[in-house]
């Protein structure tokens, strides 16, 4: 069973009077433990694809099975639960809460767990250690460099131990040296068993993945 199985996924947005078809029939399988890069230029539909993969949105038509469960027609609350338990997001501009500490940011996904779990704080601190920021737990995001902020975001994305890590242009705002550090961190996580999907327009970055999927004008090429 594939972790992600997309079959003939179409997505149409209504912009004013016009229907714009952003994804025009995408079929894709991602296996557990893979490190896949989805590459495409802006406007190719790669972000829409990531939103669908991350259950932030549902397709207009087609089937998306996540660990065998059809998720394309689930209600909003169910999608939220799946994001909470199974998916971790990493964004281009880090998206940390500015008024919360590093530790509080890492703990964010645990706030929305349906059931109480023990040892969350210890796990958060452990993750911070993994990304090399154990001594920054009490800092505010504004006191960290861009690379450090993105590493906090990675720790946050891993907090609820997701099956799928989605990184949308994670290095877009970082210099090349920091970028390669972040990519290395993602590779490390992948080698520990986490499935990583990297969305990027940058060929160099994509080349770090074990498989590259190219998307152009709403279709895989």
């Amino acid at each position: 069973m594939s972790l992600c199985e997309l079959t003939d996924i179409k997505k149409t947005y209504k912009i004013g009077e016009d229907n714009v078809e952003v994804l025009k029939g995408i079929s894709l399988k991602i296996e557990k433990g893979e490190f896949v890069a989805i590459m495409g230029t802006s406007g190719s539909g790669k972000t829409t694809l990531m939103n669908l993969l991350g259950c932030l949105d549902v397709p207009t038509s087609g089937s998306y099975k996540l660990s065998g469960t059809e998720v394309s027609s689930l209600p909003d609350d169910e999608l939220s639960r799946i994001r909470n338990e199974h998916i971790g997001f990493i964004f281009q501009s880090f998206h940390l809460l500015p008024y919360a500490t590093v530790l509080e940011n890492v703990l964010l996904p645990t706030l929305y767990l349906e059931h109480h779990q023990d040892g969350l704080k210890a796990r958060a601190l452990h993750l911070l250690e993994l990304v090399g920021l154990q001594d920054r737990a009490k800092f505010k995001p504004s006191q960290l460099s861009g690379g450090q902020q993105q590493r906090v975001a990675i720790a946050r994305a891993l907090m609820n131990d997701p099956e799928l890590l989605l990184a949308d242009e994670p290095t877009g705002q970082l210099d090349s040296r920091t970028a390669s550090e972040i990519i290395k961190t993602l590779s490390d996580m992948n080698s520990k068993g986490t499935t990583v999907v990297l969305i990027t327009h940058d060929e160099n970055i994509a080349s770090n993945a074990k498989r590259i999927v190219k998307i152009s004008d709403g279709l895989l090429v």
Binding site: G54, L56, D76, D77, S80, R81, R83, N84, E85, F89, H95, L96, L97, L108, P109, L111, Y112, L113, R156, N160
Partner: peptide, 16 residues
């Protein structure tokens, strides 16, 4: 709105 988006992505439901 960004904060709301972050929370929703992290698994917050509408009612949360």
């Amino acid at each position: 709105s960004k904060e709301i988006g972050i929370r929703r992505a992290a698994g917050a439901k509408k009612r949360d």
